[in-house]
Design a binder for these strands. Structure first.
Lengths: 188, 188
DNA sequence: CCATTTTTGGAACAATCAGTCAAGAAAAGG
DNA sequence: CCTTTTCTTGACTGATTGTTCCAAAAATGG
């Protein structure tokens, strides 16, 4: 198997994520992609098929990476409630970067099954881990025992979306911190 | 002043809002607009200038109407806390419709000053009324007295965004209700 | 009825779009 | 060295974009 020159596919995908998250699918031209990914146009089509397939791949990659980052936080602290807090704090700190997940949901809603599947896959994985941690925190008496872990997790992820949109609309870091704090307050 | 035939400008704008909120600016073609607004293409350009100006006008109209709807809720109930709840409940009930404000912020962030100005104007008006009501509720002892009205209002609006995105990503009415309830729980 | 104004529809515009083709440059393996 | 594979480049193709022009149709006011 002759391994010849190959550009870094993952790196190129990351660059595509960077463009898509900032300008959306319709707002991104193939020229913008080629420039950002630093590959020839032909390589783009050979490697990723077409613009839509590349977008789906970018959304998928972003989703799994973002989910992984959340999971890392969720396992960071021994006390479950501290991990939950760590997860929200990371969101606050990284909120200045546009979220491709939210952008994609806004742009396409439920109209593209291949995207919906990607969202759901990531959501299920994240939901599972979060609920587990939330139940631990409940058992430890650190958060409310009357709420179901499902609705708490749903609320936290809705809050994440709220925080990111607030950031995109120009909220200060101080305001974002306050949003994160209040989200946790709801489940205490 | 000869009043000649005129199509309903406001009605046409509403139709434009309907298309833009669902497909965004880049995802909307002038053909889609002309069809939805039920006017000739030339009338569109004569009346609204171009696609971008029409979009700005649509965002402005949507913002003020949405703000008005919030304000109506905020004044609906005698008890301040009931009004706040009414405001959130309306959001939950109407969440299946895409929000042009969120869509616009997602698509353009802070990159278009003329849009940013529209957001801020609506936000200021709504913020003022909400803080007033929140302080009333604090005085009545119905919500927390330790939080500032500003951060509570910010949080409620972030929650509105979170709820609407959850809806667009397919959350059930039951889930949305739970989100609204938990948002209020944060400021209790 | 006529004159004026507004709206319409289609044709045409240049610009840009996504995607393809072909030739050559660069890299890798022998 | 040469061959093979991969990548890049630029030109090219239709299709679609936003926008304008123009003439006909419709509606209004007198």
């Amino acid at each position: 198997m002759a391994r010849t020159k190959e550009f870094d596919k993952e790196l190129a995908l990351d660059a595509a994520v960077g463009v898509f998250r900032e300008h959306g699918f319709d707002g991104t031209s193939t020229d913008m992609l080629v420039r950002a990914m630093k590959i020839g146009r032909q390589s783009l089509y050979d490697t990723f098929g077409d613009k839509w397939k590349l977008y789906c791949l970018a959304v998928e990659r972003y989703s799994t990476e973002e989910t992984n980052a959340h999971l890392v936080m969720l396992r960071k602290e021994p006390r479950a409630v501290d991990s939950i807090r760590a997860m929200m704090e990371r969101v606050v700190e990284t909120a200045e970067q546009a979220c491709l997940g939210i952008s994609s949901i806004c742009e396409f809603g439920q109209s593209r099954p291949e995207l919906t599947y990607v969202y759901q896959t990531a959501d299920r994985r994240l939901m599972h881990a979060t609920c587990q941690r939330l139940e631990e925190a409940q058992a430890a008496g650190d958060i409310s025992g009357t709420l179901s872990s499902d609705e708490m997790a749903d609320f936290l992820f809705a809050s994440v979306a709220g925080i990111r949109i607030a950031a995109r609309s120009g909220a200060s870091q101080k305001q974002l911190k306050s949003l994160g704090r209040l989200a946790l307050r709801a489940i205490e």
